[in-house]
């Protein structure tokens, strides 16, 4: 695909951090039959041209909403979430540079995808939605891994 915005990331560490907390997080998901990211088959249908925009939007979704709405008492899980959040912040800085250079344009199709995610999130109480979205990080990480294979560590 067209790599408009190569992002350097430590994907192995990100996935390890998530797998370490996945069971604990998903155990707190009280609405197992509802999904926020996973419902989106369209995430798979994102065109290379829109990859940067969707990446930027989903990073912002997690940074501005999910991590903020989640209150984590367990220090071990808190460390893992912090690791992921700070890794996303690092990625976000790269994406923002691409945006400044005009290499991260958002078309309507891409904007619609992330709007659906926000709408799904809004259907639930913020903390419940945050736990569910954290539990679905594997969907986002798999999508990133697939779309940035040469950029991942």
């Amino acid at each position: 695909g067209l790599r408009r915005c190569p992002i350097s990331m430590d994907m192995r560490h990100l996935q390890e951090s998530f797998q370490d907390i996945q069971r604990a997080i998903q155990a707190n998901d009280t609405f197992q039959n509802i999904t926020i990211l996973s419902a989106l088959d369209s995430l798979q249908g994102i065109k290379p041209l829109d990859v940067c925009c969707v990446t930027r939007s989903l990073l912002a979704f997690y940074m501005d909403r999910v991590f903020k709405d989640h209150q984590e008492p367990d220090p071990h899980i808190l460390r893992r979430i912090s690791s992921i959040a700070n890794s996303f912040l690092y990625m976000q800085k790269t994406v923002q540079q691409c945006q400044v250079q005009g290499r991260c344009h958002c078309r309507e199709e891409a904007t619609n995808v992330t709007q659906i995610i926000h709408n799904n999130y809004n259907q639930l109480e913020a903390r419940v939605a945050a736990v569910k979205s954290l539990g679905e990080l594997n969907v986002f990480l798999a999508w990133i891994s697939e779309n940035y294979q040469d950029g991942s560590a």
């Binding site: 940074m63 501005d64 991590f67 903020k68 912090s82 700070n86």
Partner: peptide, 9 residues
């Protein structure tokens, strides 16, 4: 605290 925490929390 990472930069995320210092910026957002």
């Amino acid at each position: 605290q990472g930069e995320y925490e210092s910026l957002y929390r």
